[in-house]
């Protein structure tokens, strides 16, 4: 099986534009699991490996636009600490929950989005952060919000000749946090996750839910309530209960071997309440 090691994005998209089946390999943390589970490597399939493309493994803060640009193949370890973690704490919290240190050294945000698992930790944070995927092909480039790019479980709007090269994350002021329920204390796939991003400047908040639907879900009905509770300090038990109910209504979970739909719906409501409570506390701490 041929494996190509392009050294820049142009070469990578040229390879992807050639006829015949291609598989894109970055960290390999999903792909190798797929192969280990017996997935056949298709006849004539070629691998395009992204590891030598420096551009994909770099990140930058563009202060003029207020945008953090993260290369699609930046590994979790880099997202989990240092400057990115300061600029974008919810992404860092999500990154820290991914797999083991070895997995975090290899796996990437781009892979997480392209794999499009409803349990994707980075994907959940990317949706809450309103991240935009920058996509290249030999024919050109386009920018698509991650929330729109992912269309269903393991389904995206990416064409076979397309490559996610980076994510643009608008930086916001205000609380952000990610929480995920798993049955062990690390190295576990989410059975319910939630990411809350409060944008104080625009007076809005975004709550994304993971593992409770075919893809990451937003909570359009709960979000204004959350904003109100956090920014206007209108929090009381009844309002929080209202948020929890609204979040649970937004969830569309299924039963599977990891958890029941009933539990997932319950848990995601609890996570939402706790994230909102943390946001209120964080704001109070900042104001004192």
């Amino acid at each position: 099986m041929p494996v190509f090691h392009p050294i820049d994005v142009d070469e990578a998209v040229e390879l992807l534009a050639r006829r015949g089946p291609r598989r894109i390999l970055a960290g390999g943390t999903d792909e190798m699991v797929r192969i280990n589970h017996g997935a056949a490597v298709g006849e004539g399939e070629e691998i395009v490996c992204l590891n030598n493309i420096t551009e994909l493994r770099s990140w930058a803060f563009e202060s003029d636009r207020g945008v953090l640009v993260i290369g699609a193949a930046v590994p979790w370890t880099e997202l989990a600490s240092g400057a990115i973690a300061t600029l974008c704490p919810s992404l860092a919290e999500a990154a820290r929950t991914v797999g083991s240190p070895q997995i975090r050294n290899a796996g990437t945000l781009g892979g997480n989005v392209a794999t499009a698992s409803p349990a994707g930790d980075g994907l959940c944070a990317a949706v809450a952060l309103d991240a935009v995927a920058v996509i290249r092909s030999a024919a050109g480039s386009r920018r698509v919000p991650v929330a729109e790019l992912v269309t269903g479980p393991k389904q995206t709007g990416l064409g076979p000749e397309e490559l996610i090269t980076s994510f643009e994350i608008p930086l916001t002021e205000g609380y952000q946090g990610y929480a995920k329920v798993g049955v062990r204390n690390a190295m576990v796939i989410s059975i319910a996750g939630a990411c809350l991003v409060v944008d104080e400047q625009h007076g809005i908040s975004r709550l994304a839910l993971g593992s409770v639907g075919p893809t990451i879900l937003r909570c359009p009905e709960a979000e204004p309530l959350i904003t109100d509770v956090i920014l206007n300090r209108s929090g009381n038990t009844a309002r929080l209960d209202e948020i929890v109910d609204s979040v649970r209504s937004a969830a569309r979970p299924i039963d599977d071997h990891r958890a029941t739909a009933d539990y997932r719906r319950h848990a995601v409501g609890v996570l939402a309440r706790r994230l909102v409570t943390r946001a209120i506390s964080a704001r109070e701490e900042n104001n004192t």
């Binding site: 990610y178 929480a179 995920k180 329920v181 798993g182 204390n185 576990v188 706790r274 943390r278």
Partner: peptide, 16 residues
């Protein structure tokens, strides 16, 4: 965080 239930998932605060 591993010392609390939920571990790295940061689900849980001490009061929970």
């Amino acid at each position: 965080p591993y010392s609390l239930p939920g571990g790295a998932g940061l689900t849980t605060d001490t009061t929970d």
